[in-house]
Structure formats: C-alpha cells, structure tokens
Design a protein around this nucleic acid. Sequence first.
DNA 1: CTGAAAGCGCTTACAG
DNA 2: CTGAAAGCGCTTACAG
Lengths: 356, 356
Amino acid sequence: MPNPKPGAADNADLAEPTAAPAKRARGGPKGLRIADVAAQAGVAPMTVSRVFNNPETVAPETLERVRQVVQKLGYVPNRLAGGLSSSRSRLIAAIVPTIAHSLFSETIQVFSETMSRAGYQVLLALSGYSDSSEEALLDAVLSRRPEGVLLTGVAHTDSLRERLRNVGMPIVETWDMTDTPIDMLVGFSHYEIGVAVAEHFLQRKVRTPGLVSANDERALARRDGFRERLAQAGIHEIAEVLVSPPSSVAVGKAALPTLMEQAPRLDAVFCGSDLLAIGVLGASRRLGLAVPSQLSICGFGDLEFATETTPQLTTVRVDGTHIGRTAARCLLDRLEGRDKVVVTDVGFRIVERETT
Amino acid sequence: MPNPKPGAADNADLAEPTAAPAKRARGGPKGLRIADVAAQAGVAPMTVSRVFNNPETVAPETLERVRQVVQKLGYVPNRLAGGLSSSRSRLIAAIVPTIAHSLFSETIQVFSETMSRAGYQVLLALSGYSDSSEEALLDAVLSRRPEGVLLTGVAHTDSLRERLRNVGMPIVETWDMTDTPIDMLVGFSHYEIGVAVAEHFLQRKVRTPGLVSANDERALARRDGFRERLAQAGIHEIAEVLVSPPSSVAVGKAALPTLMEQAPRLDAVFCGSDLLAIGVLGASRRLGLAVPSQLSICGFGDLEFATETTPQLTTVRVDGTHIGRTAARCLLDRLEGRDKVVVTDVGFRIVERETT
DNA sequence: CTGAAAGCGCTTACAG
DNA sequence: CTGAAAGCGCTTACAG
C-alpha cells in the first residue's frame, strides 16, 4: 500500500482533537477546513483539493479514503477561498429587469438549469426597468468576479457597455438585436416584430390602428417598426397610449377608452404584452365591440393560458426557453475555450389562434 | 492637513508604474487590487478598505481623495477576498423548485429586491420538484457560504433538515406550514386550503367532487385536507388524477375525461393550479358542461389574467409578494442581530369571481 | 483617524 | 501520484 501514513487509522477521531486552539487567531472556530479533512485522511491539503477538482489525478485508494472522511465530517469546500485562489468563481451573473411577470422567467429557468449542469451557479441581479442604478448594480455583480454575464437586452448606457467590453469576460445579450453587440447575442428584433404586426393588420384591411405599450426600450422599438411600416402604407395617425412598466390587465382595460377618444373608429390595437391585450379585450367586450371582427387585438408574449382562454387574440410568440438554452451554451463554449463570436437571431412568430 | 503623504499628488499616475512585475507570481495581471488604489491615493490598503466598509471612520479629505482614485481607476472590490477574510459573504441563497411557472417568481422578485436594498445579493438555486439531487444542490449552495437561506417549502428529507439546522445560519422556510420548522417560517397550510375548498364545494351542494393535481408534496397536502373534510361530510369516493409536474393547461384538459370515467356524475373539480383549472374549463366546454352551474371548478394560485378571462373559475389566492417581503425581513432582522423566532401564517383566500 | 502584520481557506506552480 | 511553500485580495485585531 502506498504511503499509509501513521496515525491515519480509519476509526481515529479528529487528529489532535484538543491540541489545536493556538492556530485560530481571528474568529472562533468557523467550521471545517480542508486541513481538517487532510489530517484525518492522513494526506496533505493539496491532495484533498485534488479529490474535489481533479479526482482523476489521485490514486484510487487515496480517493476513496479522502471521500469517506469528507462524507463522515460533512465537509463542504469554501468556494470563496477556492475562487479567490484560482480566479475561477464558477459564478455566472444574470441581469434581468424582472422575473415576476414571467416573460423572462422561463429564459432564466432554462439558463440556470443548463449552467448548473455544467458546474456553475447563477447570481440573479434584478435591474428593474430603470437605468438609474445600473452602475451600482454592475459594481455589485462584478464584485463577485463572475466568469460570465447574461444580460437581458435593456438599453445599456454607453458607459455601461464600455465597462462590460473592458471586463474581458464572456457576455451574452439576449431578448434584443443590435448591430453592435458587446460580445455575443441571442435575441430577435423588436423593430421587426412591429413591422410584422403592422403587416398583419394591413392584411386584415385595418385602417385605424392604435397602440398600447409600456415605455421601455424594447417595447418602443416594436412601436417604431409598427409606425414606420404603417406610414409606408399611408397610415400616419396612430392612436397611442404609453404607460410605465409593469403593465397589467387593469392598465390595458383603462387604455382602450383613451385610444378611442383619440381615434373613434379604431379597428386594431397592438399591445405591448399579452396582459395588456387581455385588458383591452375585456374593455372592448364592455363597449360591445366584437373581437376580432370589429377590433383586431395583437399581444406580445404568448402566455400559455391565452390560447385556451382568449382565442380571439393574436399574439407574438418568442421562444424564451430557446434563448435561455442558447445563451447558456454560448457562455459555456467560451468558458471551455472555444473562441467564437455568436449572434443568433431566434426570430419570432405571429400566432393567430382563431379567425372567427 | 493631516498626514499628506509625499508622492501622493493628485495627478500622479500609478506609483511605480513599471517597477511592479516582481510581485505577481501566480497568474498574469488580474486587475486592480486595493493596493493599487491605496498607492495612488497615498494611503494604506486598510484605509481604502475602510472607505468601502466604514466610511464614517475615515477623515473627510482622505475619503474624498480615495473615492476619486476609485472612480478614476474603476476599481471594484473583490468580494471573494472580502468574504473570505471577514466571513461575511453578503450572499443569500434562495432555493426554489422553479421560477418558470410563476407562482414563486413574484416571491423571489420581492425577496431579491428587499435583500439587495439591504446590501445582499441573491444566489438562485433551482431544485426542480425532485428530492434526488437536493444534497448536491445544498453542497453547492453552502460552498458559497451564504449568510442566510430562503427555502421554498419542498418536503426536505430528514438528512437535509438536519444539515440545515446545524449550519447555524438564519433560514426561512416559505410557502408551507409545519409544527417543526428548521428555523423561521413564512407560509400557510396547504392542508387547510384543501379543507376550505372542500367546504366551499359542500356549501354549493356538490355531491361528486374530483381532483386533478400534480403529485408534489404541497399539492398532496391540499389533497389530504380536501379528502378528509369531504369524508367528514360522508363523501368518500373521490375521483382523482395525479400528474407529474409541471402541470399545464393541456394536462388539465386531458384530465377531465379521465375523471368522468371514474365518476360520471362529477359536479366539481379541485385543481392543483390555475393552469390545470383552465384546462379543465376548456374540456368541460367541449363536453357541453356549464361552469359553474353543472360543474364547479376551483384552481390554485390566482393568476392575474384569470379574473378577466375565466370568471367562471374559483381559485385560491395566496400573497406571494407578502411572503417574499416578510421572508426577507425575517432574515435581515436576524442578520442585524435581532434574535427572533418567527412563524408567520400569511393565510389564503378563496376567490369566487362570479356566481353566474 | 491611520497603518503594519497576520490570517481567512483555498490553489498554483513547482519539485520529487 | 503526492506534498511544501507561496500567494490570491481582502479584513481582523491590534497599536499608535
């Protein structure tokens, strides 16, 4: 047997159980360290480290012995120390406006599952919809020294983009499209969605379309595409209600009367979210407007329930799950040394559930 | 002026800009350290540390000078090092089955907002609905040395509960109720919800109720309350369909015919989630059953849209936002030294939207 | 109000 | 396959 250290009997309790107090100068006893495991297994700390990080470089007997001690003691490595020492935090930051209203939550779900299968953990940073504190948020995130960052394509300020370019870690922007990504990109064009919805309305011979939307960056991009395509078709007057996020059913409900004041002959509404669309649908019911025959309504997000409960609505479907998975793979490829630059347009689809 | 160190002129570039290479033995240049800031500001590293952690103990002039250097250099402290050194990771772990299907996502949203306002960051750990890998997940979480943990009341194995009791950090369990919490608890009784829904059905003179539910721990507790209360009323035969999570509209739709095979005179269904309830509603429409007059349907979760789109459904409302906020406060109180034990029952409400 | 020394618990980079 | 030394970038616990 190679190197059976004396005093490393399998049944021995902690080596020198009472002779240790001198060493711990700072706090009290803070829990088990790699040295405790090493002592009891009769190996050097380095070997215990290898058991966790490079088990294939350790002799089978040693491996087994150390693992038993780890199990018996309930030792859990300290990754603050490990990360500091190795410059590998095994942490990935995900910066998202919100997970409460679920458009992004499935992206984060899949992203997180994929990253954790690869041995990384996700630090969740909620940015809200305001840019105000983004610098502070970024500081907080970077202070953890993540190895990669997922951004939800909120319009970053120039200063922020600049900082992110300079940190030298892989970054994926998602849920948006641009010609000048910080690094990698998995998303789609909100502008093109606006164009597509406009064309959808035009095909339906809509003449007086309106728009209800939150005034966040991406919703406004959809609006721009919508307006410009309609302008090409000669429609320039577009009733519009912009609201602050978060949008909701109630907000949508309140918006329809306002739109109809602006445009009494309103015959279509493009809504910034399915929740808004459901609100507009409810309001149109009260006003006795048939949907979609008298009023076409298009939402955004394709919430699962909507197909069943509100087949009169059209919506725009985006595959958030696909975005999450792809973004994770992009980061992992980079982290594993594959040097690629990726811009993936995952596209979107207009879903008409029922033509009545 | 106190202690104006020589060579600390405000416009000087990095002190000894080229004379440093000897020191960095391990990796390449890894970025700015506190020593870089200290050198340029003409103070000791300790003082820079104070500027971040105890600014009130630093002389105003020094504070200002250091902050300018920090700004100019773009220095961001390394919290891996800080956490290791101080045993304060400023990290809180949140363990949640999933955030994709949104019952928990608003709890996490509010929890995260509250914690970050207090200077903590949230490490998100998705456990899925299986207990299988929970030990590994807990290891991963504990390896970051969080200062507190939020659990979403999945039935933890005994071994897990034992470990959590022993880690000696504040823990809040949420979304459930028990007589033997690990530490603090903010939730409600799923069993009592089942009882309440049974009573709701009994009031409506229901005679042949059924149940569709995912087979996760908490849904099963609701089922138990439901069945036992019905048994007290003399109803023992209860049609039942149990499915694996995640539940969905499609699953609910498929379940109704199965229930009706078991109980052809079915006149009520308690569903494990609003999505299931929407599916059951859709299926009953196809079968020509009027809801709620011929078939009462009760969901769980009170999704926002449902009030508007499916007023025929009854549901159980739980305030996820309140849970998140309260859980955060419990942890923060503990972290700030207030030694309290908390069990909060936030309750629930049965919401009948329309009596037809 | 400020600083020099020691230590937090790991891993790197060698050496054997 | 294994280990001793040095270092990762901070903060604690003093001392002045």
